[in-house]
Design a protein around this nucleic acid. Structure first.
Lengths: 142, 142
DNA sequence: GGACATTATTTGTATATACAAATATATTGT
DNA sequence: ACAATATATTTGTATATACAAATAATGTCC
């Protein structure tokens, strides 16, 4: 006997992963205009809004590991969008003028992304979902 | 002015990805006993329950791309847990005796996984979440 | 029945992320 | 003030996944 919904496992593992992959695809499209992946774009926005922000703060805000944050910064540095200064054990990340000029475009992409998904799933529904996901993220171990 | 919740972006992109990563971690722990990643384990369970299943069917059930399915099967083949037979353009995947014997252990891991996360987030809450995620997955473009 | 399109699978390559270890600095207890 | 510990960041490496192209077989249309 097959399950009623045989399209995919009725399991949190696949549901959460599949959803994340699909949303990632929408996000990738939304940020194509600025030639950045969503992760790079979000990190860059945080740097522009808080110049000198440290990798450890980015780790907390983006919920990524320190090594991933380092790699994201490296790429933005290659693209001349940020610069790093290290003093002691601390590193500060600053936006370049080139990056600052991009801010309106970055915000526009963010808006496009929001429009894209809320057009499909509805504004209330998506807000509810984000909120319940965030509650869950807080509950789960780090 | 900072947002009330400054820990991470109040955005579907990060929420869905962060949630998926955290759940993946719980899943990885749950399947450590059988020495498989959750993806490999789920694929193997599908093969055991439906011997001869084709990669295209696995693609639909697991919501992964054909190339990823091929790679997962390759690894299970290396571990002598499945065999492939190709006739024409179709491929059939069969479990080995070694794999069939593992089924109870695989099911036990699945149960552990379910116990692990429902202990943290509650059975009703997790069922609700899976269901609303699945609805969303259906709505979003492939 | 042959040209063209469609389907199924695999292969080459790229990417995002993580883990573990390395490095370097700062803090604390005595 | 020194040893031990904790914190911040980077580096080396591994993994899961995807995309695009290649391969191969099948179906269709005139």
């Amino acid at each position: 006997m097959k399950a009623a919904n045989s399209k995919y496992c009725q399991c949190l593992y696949f549901s959460s992963n599949a959803l994340a992959r699909k949303i990632e695809k929408i996000a990738n499209d939304s940020w194509k205009k600025v030639g950045l992946t969503p992760s790079h774009a979000y990190l860059l926005m945080l740097v522009i809004e808080d110049p000198g922000i440290q990798p450890s703060a980015l780790v907390k805000q983006l919920l990524l590991t320190p090594s991933t944050i380092t790699r994201l910064i490296e790429k933005l540095e290659q693209k001349k969008l940020v610069v790093r200064t290290t003093e002691g054990k601390l590193t500060n990340v600053y936006p370049t003028p080139k990056a600052k000029v991009m801010l309106p475009d970055l915000k526009e992409c963010l808006h496009h992304f929001y429009q894209n998904y809320s057009a499909i799933i509805g504004k209330e529904e998506s807000a509810r979902l984000v909120s319940s996901m965030n509650k869950l993220i807080d509950k789960l171990p780090p």
